[in-house]
Design a protein around this nucleic acid. Structure first.
Length: 411
DNA sequence: GGTTCCCGCCATCCG
DNA sequence: CGGATGGCGGGAACC
């Protein structure tokens, strides 16, 4: 009962300037990724993550569930995930697409068979270590179909699974993966969906009882969560629907590039290749391009969650802001400096103040990294940035080079 | 005043 | 049983 809004509890450590943005799932996800996306990480502990990111466990579950759904993580055991990284994404997407297509073709509109796990199920017995592997929402995901869910109540478990964040994520993604191929009446046109639409589609649409409406609203809320982390991974981006102006999301997919490639990390070899092909194949191009306002909001507040890793968060925030330059141009982790696209043509930019950006990037990077984890993180950023820069500088002659001095400053 | 979505309660699962 | 997991919706920040 009476769950008082936390700011009023434990008022002791609270100067109010609460800002939701600082605590968004998306940001948390970025930080999560920054933290674990390195060569020497192959396992992620939930407690560890929560501690290092300074958030409650509950939030980690949210992130982990959607990341698992897109192949970035795989559940290994209680409390433990293995880090697969961005290289896992293409494979996961392929699988999702395949499933989706199967579902579509096997469907004539109504209820579809649910929960008939395919390939993923094999995981459980092909390898002793996975003896205790539970299919988990992600794996079971295949089961539920795009237009199902209104189906009978099954066992409580199935029911619960059906509504899991992971599954919802997968179905949400499938929506995008099938736009180009979906049969006659397509699920939706264009490559954007509003969450509202998405929720309806994922619900099995149908006639709207008030029951359904509630259900829908609830689902939308979940979709916001999902969308936030997916867009922090740059798999989707937020836009508006053309006619309605309604906020919506557009699929970006795997057009990012994971990391300046150098035979890195990556636990799944085939996926790696595939990933690289896609990543470097043809389009690093149309990454959207926006300018970040390089001014830090100054209204931080220490909260109980923040205390331990306060500085980590601060720095991450800064770093994210610089590098990700307001959502749009952020490509799979902090690997692309703000304000640069491959082609200089279609830039929605006023003024060619690119150089200035390098400068400010550098100067705002100087600051307050003063603990181990942070410097590591910082080094990580710089490394990634460096190799990215080299590559781009080589590959594109019209690329505006940052001054040497700036680079040196960074290093 | 609608949209977005954080927060944490509490049902369920699982060892 | 107790800890891990995660659905869920209230309600506040945000626009």
């Amino acid at each position: 009962m009476a769950s008082l809004p936390s700011p009023f509890l434990e008022s002791g450590c609270r100067h109010h300037t609460y800002s939701r943005k600082q605590k968004s799932l998306g940001l948390l996800c970025s930080n999560f990724v920054s933290l674990y996306d390195r060569d020497d990480v192959e396992s992620v502990g939930l407690d560890d993550a929560a501690r290092r990111l300074g958030v409650e466990r509950r939030r980690i579950y949210d992130i982990v569930n959607v990341l698992e759904s897109v192949g970035v993580l795989a559940r290994k055991a209680k409390n433990r995930y293995s880090w697969i990284g961005f290289s896992g994404i293409p494979k996961a997407l392929d699988e999702l697409k395949e499933e989706a297509l199967k579902e579509i073709s096997g469907t004539d509109g109504q209820c579809v068979k649910v929960l008939e796990d395919e390939d993923e199920g094999k995981l459980s017995d092909q390898n002793g270590n996975f003896g205790d592997y539970k299919p988990s929402p992600a794996a079971i995901g295949a089961a539920s179909s795009l237009c199902t869910v209104a189906c009978k109540a099954r066992s409580v478990t199935d029911n619960r699974r059906e509504k899991s964040l992971g599954l919802l994520t997968q179905n949400f993604v499938k929506l995008f993966l099938t736009t180009d191929v979906s049969p006659p009446p397509p699920l939706f046109h264009a490559d954007t969906v509003s969450l509202d639409e998405a929720a309806r589609l994922l619900l099995g649409d149908g006639h709207d009882s008030s029951q359904m409406r509630n259900n829908n609203a609830a689902k939308v809320r979940r979709l916001y969560d999902i969308a936030n982390v997916l867009s922090s991974m740059n798999l989707i981006e937020k836009t508006q629907q053309l006619e309605t102006r309604k906020p919506a999301f557009r699929w970006l997919g795997t057009k990012g590039k994971p990391k300046a490639d150098t035979g890195v990390t990556v636990a799944i070899p085939p996926a790696t290749k595939q990933w690289n092909k896609r990543a470097f194949g043809n389009d690093i191009t149309n990454v959207d391009h926006k300018r970040s306002k390089l001014n830090n909001p100054v209204d931080k507040k220490p909260s109980k969650a923040c205390l331990r890793s306060d500085d980590l968060k601060e720095c991450n925030l800064t770093a994210q802001k610089q590098l990700q330059s307001s959502k749009g141009s952020y490509v799979f982790g902090p690997f692309r400096p703000a304000g640069v696209t491959k082609r200089n043509g279609d830039v929605e930019e006023k003024g060619g103040n690119k150089v200035q950006d390098w400068e400010s990037l550098a100067s705002s990077f100087r600051p307050q990294y003063h603990n181990q984890a942070l410097s590591e993180l910082f080094v990580h950023y710089v490394e990634a940035w460096k190799s990215w820069y080299v590559e781009v500088a080589q590959g594109s002659s019209n690329f505006q080079q940052p001054r040497k001095s700036v680079i040196n400053q960074l290093l």
